[in-house]
Every structure is written in C-alpha cells, then in structure tokens.
Design a binder for these strands. Structure first.
Lengths: 126, 126
DNA sequence: GATACCACTATCCTTTAGGATAGTAGTATA
DNA sequence: TATACTACTATCCTAAAGGATAGTGGTATC
C-alpha cells in the first residue's frame, strides 16, 4: 500500500542480515595477528616456535590462542607427527583460500585510501 | 642469485605492505557502529537525533565519536544549515561508495562461512 | 648434572572499545 | 515559568584484547 520510496533497496531485515554477514567476516579477520600468522604459513607449514620467530614479537600465549581460533575456523590444521620426539606443525587448509578475494579487495581499498589521504595532505581542503 | 623457492610470491616487505593495507581497511570498517550508521544514512541524510533513534541503543557519546571518525575518513559530511534554529544533517559522500565492492565481498564470504558452519554442525567431522 | 630446545600454560597487568548516566546551552512551546 | 526538543559533552565504569613475565614437562645435548 505504500507509495513512492522505490529507491530504498533494503528493508530493516535485509540490512541486519547484511550487517551480520559483514561482521562475521570482520570478526574472523580481526585482531593483530590472524593475517600475519596466515601469511607466515603460506608456502609451507611451520612449527610453533618457527611461527613465533617469524612474527618476532608475539608471545606464546597469544600465538597459542590465535592458532586455536584459526583452527576452529578451519583456516589451518594442527598436525602431530609421531616421531620421537613428536613434532607439531601448523598448515593452512584449502578453505583458507576462500578468503583470497576478500583479502584482495581489502588490500586494494586500503592502498587507495592511503593514497587518497596522502594526496589530500599535499593539497589540503580546496 | 638465490636458487629455487620460485613459489614464494611475497617478500617480507610486500607482506608487510599487504598486511598494513588490509588492516587500514579493517580499521575504518570496524567497531560496532560504523556500518549501521552508514546504512542508516543511505537513501537520505539524517540529523543527529534521527540517527540515534534509527539505531535504537547507541548513546550520544558513541554516536558523536563515530560520526567524527566517519567524517575524518570522508565517508560523510556534517552540514550546518543556517536556519533559526540551525539544523545539522549528516550525509554520505560519493567517496563512501568506494566501499561497495569491499562490503560486497565481506558480505558474500560471511554468508558462505555461516552456511558452512551450520552444515558442519549437521554432519559433524567425517 | 647443567643447559637448551620444544610446545605450550598460568598469572598478572595495561590499553582500548564501548556503555551508563548526567549535564549543558540554546530555542520553542504551553 | 515549566517542559521539551536539539546536538551534543563530561565523568565514570565494564569488558575484551593484548602483552609481560614466569613456569611446566618432556627430550636431547654437552
């Protein structure tokens, strides 16, 4: 029965759905260490202390927590090889690749945004 | 001079650049209110109290802070119209549209991730 | 026996995000 | 004069993220 307002694309419900979906994604990517850890593991699996050394200033407590969360989200697997002594490696899953497009867009926008800020510092508000 | 390792796409430097770019983007999108506020403003500009009512449980302190940050990032402008009394409206900028592709990818991935989690609850680990 | 590497865990502390509650200065309305 | 609306600011508080520092139980090496 409502007239006009044809331009409004979203109802309150679809908005909430969209916000929730975006926030789900932001949630799994956020924090200081998730991306660096995943990057550290691209190419080859690594052991706990190897990752710690690659990241330089992460503490074992934080690394342990982040690895657990990444494993829960199925971005990596913890593999125990029964040598003596056991050696434990962390390895990215194929599923972690599903983030590629998202990360690409986030990266591109970040680069453009930074360029824009720098440019607007050079010639401030017209 | 280095042999082999042709598969390694990133040097330590390009990784850091990429991580920084992604984090820049995550930074401007993050927090509880930035997206809801921008969505509230799509379609038409709104006044402070109108936004507050649309978002239902945001406090004026938080809203004020978020609006300032969104303005700094040039996602919106604060317009003062010199009527008596003055009325102040907040309006999305054309630049805010540059986020569209990013938000689309974040949304799609969020939806797929949620579906995957629900599916894996139905038939747990094979 | 001492030291060192591995993969962590435990405890405490600081910083940041976000919220609750109250107040302010101005205008308008009853 | 009292009430209410607009656009905020100020003060205090809580919860979560993240970090510093130390310790644990095992194996291996000197």
């Amino acid at each position: 029965m409502e007239t006009g307002a044809d331009k409004i694309i979203h109802t309150k419900e679809t908005c909430n759905t969209d916000v929730t979906a975006v926030r789900d994604t932001l949630y799994v990517l956020n924090g200081k260490w998730k991306l660096p850890i995943m990057i550290a593991l691209t190419g080859s699996p690594k052991r706990f202390n190897e990752i710690q050394r690659a990241l330089e200033d992460i503490t074992p407590k934080i690394l342990s927590k982040e690895l657990r969360e990444l494993e829960l989200n199925e971005f990596l697997v913890r593999k125990v090889s029964s040598t003596v002594p056991v050696s434990i490696t962390y390895e990215l899953t194929p599923y972690s690749k599903s983030l590629e497009k998202v990360l690409e867009e986030l990266k591109n926008w970040g680069i453009e945004h930074r360029e824009r800020i720098i440019a607007s510092r050079r010639k401030p508000a017209a």
